[in-house]
């Protein structure tokens, strides 16, 4: 998947998880919400793994390179409108 498309996908999965986490905080026994949480957590994990491998880290703990510290590479999120 191209970089922008994969990034946008991660952003959508991330927001879906943000939403369901708040809902689960006040509805901890909702099986339907818990299934949704696990589904999107797994989808996001796979997408982030692919992004890290192809394009770079989204957190300082996802640097894959053994040769170069890529965490501080530009651009940063506030510098590109796509973010």
């Amino acid at each position: 998947m191209d970089r922008d498309k994969l990034f946008r996908t991660i952003q959508m999965y991330g927001f879906a998880i943000d939403e369901i986490v708040l809902y689960l905080d006040t509805h901890p026994n909702c099986q339907h919400a818990l299934n949704y949480y696990h589904k999107y957590n797994e989808l996001k994990r796979e997408a982030v793994e692919e992004y890290n491998r192809l394009y770079g880290p989204l957190t300082s703990r996802q640097v894959k390179s053994r040769e170069k510290w890529t965490w501080t590479n530009e651009p940063w999120p506030w510098e590109r409108s796509a973010d």
């Binding site: 300082s60 965490w71 501080t72 590479n73 530009e74």
Partner: peptide, 16 residues
């Protein structure tokens, strides 16, 4: 201050 940092290293340092 991060938004006025001109180099990646400084953006990273201020963020972290």
């Amino acid at each position: 201050q991060r938004y006025a940092a001109p180099y990646g290293e400084i953006k990273g340092l201020l963020t972290d």
